[in-house]
Design a protein around this nucleic acid. Structure first.
Lengths: 141, 141, 141, 141
DNA sequence: TTTT
DNA sequence: TTTT
């Protein structure tokens, strides 16, 4: 069935990068998406939406994006069900992105997020993220 | 900023209808949206996504939709932050629908959800939902 | 850059199927999409939108869809420029579908479009469409 | 029925502004939307898509946008049928925008499009576009 | 036909 | 030009 979401917003934290045991890259970050201004409510409201990206794009996002950058995200809304530490059933929602487009340029002198520095040849070490123990069906953020 | 989501899925429960103290109708229901089949995972996976509809459409949905019906939903993804009973910060996500389109017909002999029966003139009593005490900025489902 | 369109509408003609010289299947059909009703204009208005589907889905659409069927189409808007027979520059627009979902069932006793009948084993002959002489970059409808 | 399109692209011409006889503002412009790069085809391909905006947003676009600016457009695809000067039935397609978001800043020293200069109070004269003779149901670009 |  |  159809499930398509398109968002434009700014990162509120640097992307995190991890790897599944089988070596698949997965990145997570959060974007702030302003709601359309509603005069009645006096102040601007914002949704903070978690984004997950897999594979090659995960690494591209981790290398190039930092807090504050403007992106367009296209993907699907995923809702996971889990039990909290009291055994209460809870839901977590995130957007699994097919594509992430960069809509602005990094600010002057901005450096890539920690741990993602290129080597002397200008190449980024891969994998440079942390390998964690989870299934490829799970989202580790 | 841009925030647009389009879903097609089936209701997994009858819609609930409530009214804000100021009389605004708000309906809530949940739809099941199948993920594209991924051979690797063996079984079909489904996202259960909460939908919220306001005003006139809330009443139209409550009167006409029941569990099992197929709908197309267009709206925005909203993420609310709240504290659970242990004081832990949690997030809830739902889709606030601008429009809900009915994609199939009610099954033969199906009756409207309890409490929504029309009167002898064929008119539905309005408001026929429960008035609850919450702000218009909150989603009560 | 981002280019995403989602439509729900009914076919106003049976799909046509063709093959590129290299054997790629491509199907074309048109759907009627009602505009939201505008009281001011008195009568319902409808957009008739051309859809193009490639490869395996082209054959699935040709085998299963007929005039009148309800579908959801997800894809991108493509605008081609061409010269008419007077040398005037004209534009043609169509939606190139990534996915076509069938939202209703064929009516009782409905048969597949002509030329697409299955053999005695229930298999459809492939290719069963007409091979035409055009580049894979062109849309032949 | 559902008809929703979301585009990100750059203006390839300054917006034109007109008014219907009844005073409704309508602006038109064209954006270039790059297709996803397809290695096979060697060169980048681009769709040039006509955008129409009505009312207040028409004036906001005309005052603020110029050729080269990056925008996100959300709306519906509209297909009009007309006869060319030989009596041949032709179709024109454009996107009728609900919202146009500006994704970059004007370049240093860039001035607003001709005819849209503010007065000494910093107010823009309204209407400052050309009044043309067409129905509000037509798109005049 | 835009832009980086 | 479709359909309910």
């Amino acid at each position: 069935m159809l499930n398509r979401i398109i968002l434009i917003g700014r990162l509120v934290r640097d992307p995190e990068l991890r790897y599944t045991p089988s070596g698949t890259a997965v990145a997570g970050f959060t974007i702030a998406v302003d709601r359309p201004y509603a005069a009645r409510q006096g102040e601007r409201q914002t949704d903070f939406i978690d984004i997950v990206v897999w594979q090659k794009q995960a690494e591209v996002c981790h290398r190039n994006l930092t807090k504050g950058r403007l992106v367009a995200v296209e993907g699907r809304l995923q809702v996971r069900s889990y039990e909290d530490n009291q055994g209460i059933r809870r839901k977590a929602a995130e957007v699994v992105a097919d594509t992430v487009r960069f809509l602005d340029r990094p600010r002057e002198g901005e450096k890539a997020p920690e741990g993602a520095a290129p080597n002397q040849e200008g190449e980024f070490p891969e994998p440079f993220g942390q390998v964690v123990d989870f299934s490829e069906d799970d989202i580790p953020f």
